[in-house]
Amino acid sequence: MSVVTTSSATGTASAPARRDAEATKAAILRAARHLLARHAHADITLKAVADQAGVSPPLILKYFGNKDTLFSQVMSFETDAAALLDAPLADLGRHMVRHVLVSQTEQGADPLLRIVFAPLHGEQGDILRANFRTQVSDRLAARLSGPDAGLRAELAVGTLLGLGVMFGIARGTHVRATDLDDIVERYAPAVQAQLTL
């Protein structure tokens, strides 16, 4: 009885459960993003997401309710864009290139590359495209000064996605065999050229 009283009084029993719940939700979202970057939305089952995340399908239902609710969060680029654009404008091209390469290397996929598979996702692809435009391209354009900011932002992002496709999807042997710092040095100026005039 004293253990229950102590746990209730200090709140230690609920704190670990909350942390575990947040870690589990994050693992589920990572797994769903991973699958969405490789498969059509209609082909992804909750069981596949659960297997990828190392949890049970009922746990996904507990946290997200259903597949549509889960994927509405997965289709957002807010968090990914915040990480991608988290650098001063003068060094943003370098940061963006490194971010894509490190994401590919450490996570097996860059979350931004989900946009490449939008045509496979039917109506969900339209949501993915709209989110990408507003949360990534338009957000980047808002940071740029000078003429044609929207065009320049889209060209910078397109250049970046090309690298991501070659590195992570086409798995170019020369690109993958090259040191990441060397790729950043060679590629960042092409991205930066669109960001600063």
Rank of each mutant, 00 (worst) to 15 (best):
A50P: 09
A87G: 11
L92S: 03
H41G: 02
E78I: 13
T69N: 08
L84M: 12
A37H: 02
L85N: 01
L59G: 04
L61R: 14
F64E: 00
L113K: 00
L85A: 03
D86E: 14
H95K: 05
A42K: 15
V55K: 09
H99L: 00
D86K: 11
V49E: 07
F77Q: 07
K67D: 00
A53N: 02
N66L: 03
V74L: 08
V49W: 09
A109E: 08
Q107Y: 05
A37W: 04
L84S: 01
L35G: 08
Q73I: 06
L92D: 08
A87M: 10
L101H: 01
R33F: 06
L84I: 07
R33I: 05
R114T: 06
I44F: 07
S72K: 04
I44T: 10
P88R: 07
I60Y: 02
N66D: 12
F71V: 08
V74Q: 04
H39R: 15
D80L: 10
L101K: 00
A42E: 15
T45S: 14
P111Y: 07
A42Q: 13
A81L: 00
V97S: 03
V97F: 01
H41V: 01
G108E: 02
L46Q: 14
H41N: 13
T45D: 10
P88G: 03
P111T: 10
D110Y: 01
F71A: 03
M75L: 15
G93P: 06
D91W: 04
R98Y: 09
A87V: 05
L35E: 06
K62H: 15
Q52I: 00
R94C: 08
